[in-house]
Amino acid sequence: MSFEMLIAFIQQSVRLSSTLLLGSTGEIITEKSGNLNLGTPGIMASGAISGIIGAYFYTKSGIPFNPIVSILITFGCAIIGALLTTLIYCFLTITLKTNQNVTGLALTTFGIGISNFIGSLINGKMGGTGIAAFPEIGEAYRATLPFADKLGVFGKIFLSYGFMTYLGIIIAVIVAFVITKTRVGLNLRAVGENPATADAAGINVNRYKYTATCLGGIISGLGGLCYVMDFAAANWQNNILDQFGWLAVALVIFAVWRPNIAVFGSIIFGALYVIGPFILGLSNKSQELIKILPYLVTIVVLVIVSIRDKKENQPPQSLGLAYFREER
């Protein structure tokens, strides 16, 4: 691999990692509250398609294009879209206490399906060329600091990304801090570990679950937006976010529920996912095979964690369980 290719490889890895990082940071917050949200791929897709909806109406409105406004509109739409999808999950699992696995999987199917539907619809309205594309907005998302390309290799490796890459890392670090070092984080962890204990300690379990899951859903949704706007340069493609959603869920386990570890994990996952084309002479078949490496790595981590059997590295104890107060 030549030097230029190496740089390009690192850049590609980091670009993809932002999507995974945001997706899994959101899922970590959710899981810390004891909710296993397997609807993450669906939520990421709904965040992404909401951004596309915003982009479509903004471009169509005829208002003169402004990059900042385009970002604000798509960003806002993604938040609303992801939040609405997550609220379905919250209402079903927290209020109605349905099975989290089934609800989550159903939500993924729903989110992917509805985003495919809307994506095709917008694509049709835009002339049916196969993809819905908003190149100007893609540019806006991928804009770097003006002096980044003057800094040589350093600039290329560290400063050549759109704002969402840095936003993802900042969010991950803040979330890691809040979870481990603040009272809110302590309460949140208690809800996920042992809701009965949290309840007896006067913590409003349902409120924590709702808030954490919604916030997590929004952050995951931004991951979807990040993929479609930044990595794919505002080109919508059906069915693509499914796999990144599952990678984000796998990354949660890889990072043993710690967003700060997820920062590095996401880059590793991103690298494993994009490495195929950079290995010369690799056939298409082999490239597809390489894309499953992140899952293999996750299994290895799972095995190591369970062999070491350290309580602090285990999933939250009541992950996936609904909480009923008046049950013995």
Binding site: R189, A190, E193, T197, A198, A200, A201, K311, E312, Q317
Partner: peptide, 11 residues
């Protein structure tokens, strides 16, 4: 009613 992975003080 204690959280296993917390310290005494955290609980």
């Amino acid at each position: 009613k204690l959280v296993d992975v917390f310290s005494a003080a955290e609980n």
